[in-house]
Design a protein around this nucleic acid. Structure first.
Lengths: 331, 331
DNA sequence: CTGTTAGCGCTTTCAT
DNA sequence: ATGAAAGCGCTAACAG
């Protein structure tokens, strides 16, 4: 069933039917009502591709997420996507999920806009300086970045204040008398990891101690291995800061295995992933907490806003709450 | 840069350039090479919408996943999506992620095919009798179902043999002398839950005991609550079967809290989600294991196959391994 | 208020 | 081996 068939059925022209369906003001209420009723009855659905070709829009937004060698989407990214979907679906925008590794990301990005696969792009977890930002800004293509990068181009972004969160996490432990603190953080090729490291370094500086930061992929076994290794050192840390609950889970396991859960203090970042509740983790952990899903909703809203040709650039940074948990260590 | 521009640049007609790019045999090797070289140099990318309109295909496959009231994608569904993406991305097919609740699923499905948003549909976790199956079969639209439903229409599906897995899980515990066994299973509106229940009932029948099965959403706190409640009964279960690692995690927590981790045996289904490793869970658990990601890859391959007009209907069912872990209870 | 007509960018007959 | 021209289904000027 195409528009032409529907028009014939109604004894009207293509144009009028199209206009009635799209709520153009110049159609009489009578006609509009009749057209809609019949369209509904015969189950007419516009061909979205044809429509896209005519209007030059496809009704989809590409979400670019990093592809790790393991090619698995981590829980945080998923939560992010869910938040995006919650806003974009009601807005009638499809989501085009695009995974790309660091070195092909610019190419992929170019590909998306040149083949017009999407009307806007969301960049998730940018690099500290991300080539896509300049490219998209130059191309004047609507985009929003989830993450604060140092790319020297004005652009719209939304982020959780990782620097602040990491600073407060570390300072929290120093203030409680810990002096040997180790931080298990994310890969340096991401801007957020750099941000967190800056926060951690500031805390170490303030307490005049040399920082101990490990960078690795956030996952259970990396958290486990680094923690185990550090705890087996001559003078092991008495406290850990984790950039992700995933590493914290693994780290917690290492701590338990060594029977140290009464003596080690832990602070972790918590992104509010529903099935990764800190409740299940031992030892108990203090956390800096912000629901990534909410941040994602803001990203989606900003993206829709940016699709307007003369939308202004906006940036926003959200501060996580610090949830202090009575725990072990020198509390 | 459009085809026309490229053609002008080359001093050739639209037609020839199009044919060269699409590897039509009637173009001379010389011309083809030259066209491709220049196209590459100027960075020409075909407009996918226009192409879609001309060919009648959009180059995307819709994946329909259930939307729960919580509107969160559970880890299993994610793993499924990752598997799908691993096959579809290299095949040049985009993924259109569509979440729909049970009662709007048929409508959504109709919508997708009538608006031609996708060239094929993947149904994930069907209902025991799923209206979409008949609809899509009647419409002669390519689709594959992940999950074995009872819908009385021949169609292509891929599944993990949940009935068998659940039977073996339960029988495993009976064989080890347990008589009070409780099963924490998924919502009955899904075919897989029905399948697992059939397997569990068969085991109970075989050992001539009345089944004890709880149905609820798979998540940490439901697993926790049901387990806690059951363990506080007058004569509590000595063993649990969990339909999902998620519930098992919560259940394990309840068992630990009651200090019963030396006395309760547990068997769980494990779908191989990388960050939900059973290693982190106490008490230790026996599991029926099958990587959902691999099943998803098969689904994607079958979908691509079904896009050929005269593809035959195929069904496949994969048996999980039972991984017996030395554990507590009456082992 | 309604209809005619010219595209949107690409593929694909049908000629040459 | 190459080109001209007719669509794919829809929207949007432009007329009336």
């Amino acid at each position: 069933m195409k528009l032409k068939d529907l028009a014939r059925e109604l004894g009207l022209s293509l144009t009028t039917v199209s206009r009635a369906l799209n709520n153009y003001p110049e159609v009489s209420d009578d006609t509009r009502a009749r057209v809609k009723r019949v369209a509904d009855r015969v189950g007419y659905q516009p061909n979205i591709i044809a429509r896209g070709l005519a209007v030059g829009e496809i009704g989809a937004i590409a979400v670019m997420v990093p592809k790790e060698s393991t090619s698995y989407l981590d829980p945080d990214t998923i939560e992010f996507l869910v938040g995006i979907a919650e806003v974009l679906a009601p807005a009638g925008q499809d989501i085009l999920l695009v995974q790309s590794s660091r070195d092909e990301s610019l190419e992929t990005c170019r590909n998306i806009i040149e083949s017009r696969r999407a009307d806007a792009i969301i960049i998730c977890y940018p690099a500290p300086v991300d080539s896509r930002v300049r490219f998209l800004a130059d191309a004047n293509f609507p985009f929003v970045v989830y993450g604060k990068s140092r790319t020297p181009v004005a652009h719209t972004w939304v982020d959780i204040d990782h620097r602040d969160a990491a600073f407060r996490s570390t300072a929290f432990l120093f203030e409680r008398g810990h002096e040997k603190i180790a931080a298990i953080e994310g890969p340096v090729q991401f801007a957020f990891a750099e941000e967190r490291m800056a926060g951690i370094r500031r805390a170490f500086d303030q307490f005049e101690l040399p920082p101990c930061i490990i960078n690795d992929t956030f996952c259970d076994y990396t958290g486990y291995e680094h923690t185990l290794r550090l705890l087996r050192q001559a003078s092991p840390p008495t406290a850990f800061v984790y950039g992700s609950l995933l590493s914290a889970i693994g780290g917690g396991r290492a701590i338990r295995e060594l029977g140290k859960q009464e003596r080690i203090a832990v602070v972790t970042q918590d992104n509010g992933v529903p099935y990764l509740s800190p409740k299940n983790i031992l030892p108990r952990m203090t956390m800096t907490s912000f629901p990534i899903r909410e941040a994602a909703k803001r990203v989606a809203q900003q993206t829709i806003r940016m699709m307007d040709v003369n939308a202004a650039i906006e940036t926003e940074s959200w501060k996580p709450r610090l949830i202090s948990i009575a725990q072990s260590g020198r509390d």
